[in-house]
Design a protein around this nucleic acid. Sequence first.
DNA 1: ACTTGTCGAGTAACCGGTTACTACGCCATT
DNA 2: AATGGCGTAGTAACCGGTTACTCGACAAGT
Lengths: 349, 349
Amino acid sequence: MSGPARRVTIRDVAKHAGVSVATVSRALAGDYPVQPSTRRKVLRAVRELDYVPNAQARALSVASPGAVAIVVNSVNTAYYAYIAQGVEEQAAAEGRLSLICTTGGDPERELAFVQTMREQRAEAVILVGSVILDDDYLQRMTRYAHALAASGSRLVLCSRPPLGEGVPALTVGFDNTGGAHAITAHLLSAGHRRILYLGLRPGHTTSDTRVAGYRAALADHGIEHDPALETRCDFDRRSGYTAMKQRLADGPRDFTAVFAATDVIAAGAVQAIREHGLRIPDDISIVGYDDVPPAEDIGLTTVHLPHTELGRAAVRLALSSKDPLTEPPIMLGTHIVVRSSVKRLGSGR
Amino acid sequence: MSGPARRVTIRDVAKHAGVSVATVSRALAGDYPVQPSTRRKVLRAVRELDYVPNAQARALSVASPGAVAIVVNSVNTAYYAYIAQGVEEQAAAEGRLSLICTTGGDPERELAFVQTMREQRAEAVILVGSVILDDDYLQRMTRYAHALAASGSRLVLCSRPPLGEGVPALTVGFDNTGGAHAITAHLLSAGHRRILYLGLRPGHTTSDTRVAGYRAALADHGIEHDPALETRCDFDRRSGYTAMKQRLADGPRDFTAVFAATDVIAAGAVQAIREHGLRIPDDISIVGYDDVPPAEDIGLTTVHLPHTELGRAAVRLALSSKDPLTEPPIMLGTHIVVRSSVKRLGSGR
DNA sequence: ACTTGTCGAGTAACCGGTTACTACGCCATT
DNA sequence: AATGGCGTAGTAACCGGTTACTCGACAAGT
């Protein structure tokens, strides 16, 4: 109506109420004695002008809690969404705002965001999601860690390998090897001996840790792992579908069960198995990992991960006073959820 | 090591480089002629001190783009996660940070967040998700709209009824009635005449608009809608399961197809149907709405919603110069995705 | 009556940047 | 030699808050 309507400042309120800016600030903060009549005048002026204090300006003069930033590949992946949910909940509970950034896996965007968070004086930066573990990655993270530490932000790695002592970064993760061991043992104790591992991706941390658990469980049962039973496959539905399709078409079926590295892979594999005319669990047993939505819908036995709790733990840790140089990684436990995708072999039934 | 390590400011850099703060600022901004040799000195000091400018301080003196805030019930619901993804992508593309808030449906938290966003000088606040449309709601939103407008933020409602002209709020939504009409027509043209609508929730905007499309399609085919075929049900998996279970147990099955108000409801219903010993689509046809992950896994024919595009559109609209007082609601189109949950009745096959 | 203490409010410095304005040095004119 | 113009760099005001310090008025103490 009347031009760009410059924002209402504390000086406007002071003038309107006929007091000094200091008095307005004090009346609003309430931490300093102000005459009740004066306070009323101030509050009235605040109401009449609809004054809203500028948080940025306040942050300049007084140390206020910074934001919590979370960086994920994408929000529309259940795995990340659950973790993000936990982060947001805990951040809110501790009076922090949550900033979110999706990178689509692009290190450039990750770097840019970390830099932005330094400028924003974020209190914590939480990087989520598995990665290809190589020198480039380690160097990049180490750089982030020091840079963020230097500007007073704390770095938390979620579901990623720790950087080791001496690097100021906190780590929270799932016990992937333990979970993979447990679910493999579950298949073994159901009588399965030839178990196809679907989701090999050498260098990829999540895959590596899960396949390690798989092999360890086999070893514990005196079975040597067969490289021919470890199939490469990316971590998405289509890849699971394609890889399974291929495997079924390739020749004689030399396995009775499938351990898919993730539920999403499992979902694709299930579709391929069904299209091949086979039934689950009668013809093939299958298990997944993660316990994200598709699992329940396809009756998949899988490993449940406390995603949301991971997010919360990350924030708690970041806002704690633990020394990031020496604090050991937190590892969250997992448990098996039994549904209807595994058939008991041999003895009866 | 050496105490709390006060943050490096532009004055420290100036001193270190032996120039004035103005020169440092200008050398970094690059919008003012600075002697190359001087610039080098400055950049060297910046590097040596690892100086990071304070974005909050800068925002005080120069008008910088504000953040985009998104408010959802929860991030770990596919519907919201997809929209949030779109919001984040578009915000990042337009150089804005994304703030996220989950309310768990609590109006208190919503209000608190809106207030915080005013203090933060957010550029846009995007409220997502269906609601119970009543006076309380309308008043609350109208208050938000004026409050945000007064402090220079723009309010966008996503998937919510518009507040009408005269209230400064932008609206983006899906054509729910159109989509529901189309999918109902799909069932009708497959020969179904008795279609159970699962997900009645009077007052709930999403439900209301979808049921309206359902009824309209029936009417177009000269069928009067039967209240006995409209079943109440909350918008979650368990409710879908329970409602369907109940319905199947209740008595003679007087429908050949089910239109679930959401895919999540459909997923629960599918489980109930299967547990009842019936097969899909042979015994019962079913369709859903939303096209979120469970749909593909259970082979559900459903209505695809451009979720991510909704998020992007919301941000674009918010950052545009459109007048929120008069700009009409944007309505995004939908389309049917045919999978394998509908059987053609009567004529052949 | 004079000192002292307390209460409430104002003045001004400060947070960490940006930038309008000023000042200085040097070269080209006249 | 005096003047004007240009290119750099410095000074200080400003953004919008908070708060240390100061000050005046009034009540209590001796």
